[in-house]
Design a binder for these strands. Structure first.
Lengths: 250, 250
DNA sequence: CAGTGGTCTAGACCACATC
DNA sequence: ATGTGGTCTAGACCACTGT
């Protein structure tokens, strides 16, 4: 029964009868409209909140969720190419032009999480340096970027200072004798952990992309693992491909 | 208070005290353990279910969610390269070897959804051919792949038949005079729609990756839009990059 | 049949933003 | 002060799966 209520409202939202930002009826109104108890109404609303369609703004009521401006995340391999007109248009549409960027950096020495230790091929007990960044645009957080380095190669380097490295941490690694020549990228889709919810101010019903890059030197040694948490409501990941070898897309 | 209960159980799960597949205490047990009402216990469990950490198997109880075997989704541009040892290991780890693939294909002529019409640069009222596929592995659905083609170029072609096209739909398009030479890829992260939940048998708390590929001919005409819905609990998207131009990862 | 979770009710108190 | 949603309670009935 609460599912039916949710279905009805969801239908109005996807059909556009209820526009983003529109106020939903109050719980009391829905209770009498459907002749059910308050808890039943709340279960229906809860469904929609967890689907990311509705937000609750106490005590103003429930609202159809607005779509955040999407941030364009081009994959670097493709940035060097001359862009096609379509790609240009796409980039322009999702540009962050005119928005005010800011970042907060923390640096620490920690025992790495298992998934990082594995990718850096560390032994138990080995420590890593971690640079944790939260990036903001117009004061709103839009992604978390944590980079891990084996402690023995970055100790006492610039990487340990909690400041912006304008030429890039990769360049510093290269100066230390560990130039990365290739990277393995993995992208997972999952629900955020509570800490990520807090750091990114994620509304309920917002999944994240979890991007892990492992950078290797020419000798095949992994020297950097970067994890990026991308809130799904604020990011499009995009790239352009040549299709010299057409094949069915898997 | 229900948040505290959820926090406690979540802590046990992430710490590994409760392993995947382990049975949680019953609602009655938790009710007396925390001395709260049943609804409060259920709210705590509901949180964990929506975070994708717990599944409910009525009437056996609640269980720590098992991780699905991950399906490796390499991006095609990179498949041609000689693989590095790391990439090979990664591909092997997530291989679908020995699993039984199957797919169900439907074909129809429809008015395209707005996001498809826009990418195909169609006028209002233009129709498209759609090939809808659900792919299974060992009888379990693992992704939805819908391909849209402007009706005027595929009418009466093989693409309209609901059968597997072994040489690929792209090749058929090429034979029709519309060879694609490049593609624009977009990847979104969001919660699934109810239809996607049904078609993919998604447990609650499972987000999806939504991958849209637009294929262009040399003349710049978009001739194909393929959308793929990737359940987050079953897919890793992965690729390897050269880093000739090191730069900070955005 | 027993025990599980799924659903629904009626009632209560609270925190908070706005008027 | 009012009205909103957030939380919690106590009790009830149901559907399903196992024994």
């Amino acid at each position: 029964m609460y599912q039916q209520i949710a279905d009805e409202i969801r239908g109005q939202i996807v059909a556009g009868d209820l526009e983003p930002g529109a106020k939903l009826p109050t719980e009391a109104e829905m209770r009498s409209a459907y002749d059910v108890s308050r808890e039943t109404v709340r279960k229906a609303l809860n469904l929609l909140v967890n689907e990311g369609l509705v937000v609750s703004a106490r005590p103003q009521g429930h609202f159809v969720r607005r779509r955040e401006p999407m941030i364009f995340r081009p994959q670097t391999e493709f940035r060097k190419r001359p862009h096609s007109p379509e790609m240009d248009a796409f980039a322009t549409e999702h540009s962050a032009e005119g928005r005010e960027p800011r970042q907060v950096i923390e640096v620490a020495i920690v025992e790495p999480p298992a998934e990082v230790a594995k990718r850096l091929q560390l032994k138990a007990g080995d420590l890593v340096a971690i640079r944790k960044r939260v990036r903001y645009l117009d004061g709103e957080p839009f992604n978390i970027n944590d980079s891990y380095f084996p402690l023995d190669i970055v100790r006492d380097s610039e990487i340990m200072r909690p400041e912006d490295i304008t030429r890039g941490a990769n360049e510093v690694l290269a100066e230390l004798g560990y130039r990365q020549v290739r990277a393995l990228d993995e992208l997972y889709v999952r629900m955020p952990q509570p800490e990520e919810v807090k750091r990114l101010e994620l509304p309920p019903g917002t999944p994240v992309g979890y991007h892990i890059t492992t950078g290797f030197t020419a000798e095949g040694r992994p020297v950097r693992v970067a994890t990026t948490v991308l809130p799904g409501d604020r990011h499009v990941i995009s790239y352009e491909r040549g299709l010299e070898t057409p094949g069915e897309e898997a």
